[in-house]
Design a protein around this nucleic acid. Structure first.
Length: 271
DNA sequence: GGCCAGGAAGATC
DNA sequence: GATCTTCATGGC
């Protein structure tokens, strides 16, 4: 029996690929982040041990066979094969739906450093911590609950410096808090229905909806088909219908995005 | 379809 | 240094 020494998850690729915004590389190969009311600092070497922890095992999706999914996607098209090779090691994290929805509302027309800054301020990371908070180590700053945000006003959110997105955050918080949008129910709802429910929220369009479904509800069938991605699909995957990606469509799009963002060269575009 | 809504980062001058 | 340009957008 050969001991499995190389887990399918690559921490850097997974945590810094733009699917989440509360992880930082605080030193070379050392990653630190907050999930729920837990704070974790780890390196790639800590992953095998993490398998024993039910919470982190679920969060990092360690029980999904990404190697098989990656092989299935690779077989669909030569360019998807390249993208999948580049994205090898990316897991789709199982993030909290509300935090994910709110984060991707903030992400629209925005860049990652600024998104991280806004979310840090939203979570109170930049507030001065009381001395008592440090008695048992650094204070953990959970993502604010929708009920908390629902009671606030745009003026209250001004210190976040999130611009026009403030009213979108408040509308989302209120619709989730009062039950108009039941995020948990979207785990099993038909994809089209789940999208429609999310798009009732002001400031949530097709892309934010699909990102919420993929990253927040682990709907691997969700595929953000915006104009940009459609163009990339048409140019780089001629004749391939995203439907053929099936239940791994979300993973495929993450591979493609990561590949494109890395500068997957124009010369690789066929024809 | 065009434009506008923060602000930060990177490119360019 | 100053000045563009861009940003996984959505709404009017």
């Amino acid at each position: 029996m050969i001991e499995r020494t190389a887990p399918s998850l690559n921490l850097r690729k997974t945590l810094l690929c733009g699917q989440c915004f509360r992880w930082r590389e605080i030193a070379p190969d050392v990653f630190s982040g907050t999930v729920g009311n837990r704070h974790l600092t780890l390196t790639q070497q800590d992953l095998p041990r993490l398998r024993q922890d039910p919470f982190w095992c679920i969060y990092f999706d360690l029980n999904t066979d990404y190697e098989t999914l990656r092989k299935q996607l690779s077989a669909l098209h030569p360019n998807l094969n390249k993208a999948a090779q580049h994205g090898c090691g990316i897991h789709i994290l199982r993030q909290e739906p509300w935090e994910t929805l709110c984060s991707f509302i903030i992400s629209q027309n925005n860049n990652i450093p600024r998104i991280q800054g806004i979310i840090d301020r939203l979570c109170g990371e930049t507030e001065a911590c009381s001395p008592a908070a440090f008695q048992n180590g650094p204070a953990v700053h959970p993502f604010p609950q929708p009920e908390t945000l629902a009671a606030l006003s745009e003026t209250d959110l001004a210190p976040l410096r999130c611009g026009f997105r403030a009213r979108y955050i408040l509308d989302a918080a209120r619709k989730v808090a009062d039950g108009n949008v039941n995020l948990e129910a979207l785990r099993t709802a038909p994809l089209a229905e789940a999208r429609a429910v999310l798009m009732q929220i002001t400031g949530v369009g097709p892309k934010v909806a699909d990102c919420t479904l993929l990253y927040g509800l682990h709907r691997m069938d969700a595929f953000p088909v915006d104009v940009w991605m459609k163009r990339a699909m048409g140019q780089w995957f001629p004749g391939v219908d995203p439907v053929s990606f099936g239940s791994a469509a979300g993973l495929a799009q993450q591979y493609i995005f990561d590949w494109v963002r890395s500068g997957a060269s124009e010369e690789e575009i066929p024809g």
